[in-house]
Amino acid sequence: MDMINIFTVFILAIFVGFEIITKVPPTLHTPLMSGSNAISGIAIVGAIIATKVGGELGTWLGLIAVIFATVNVVGGFMVTDRMLKMFKRK
């Protein structure tokens, strides 16, 4: 993939992000934050790959990265679910 393509993807993703996130009502802003925490755990993909590239040092960095990212993914989705299930109508 060349640089122009990847920048195109990046810019378009930002626009999509702005479009959909402005529609999230204030009452759900905390779940939005914890949910986006979970999504930024996508770094786990990079962390998995890092265990391969690195040799000795890379493996260690990769391990810590996997731990951090998994905390984000698992904790983020779980706590968001826990919150969202509390939002009830009358």
Partner: peptide, 20 residues
Amino acid sequence: IFNGFGGGASALVAAAEYFN
């Protein structure tokens, strides 16, 4: 703290890439 873990994970992945 989760923001911190997310940022930390990204930095570590980039660091691993730096060394190799």
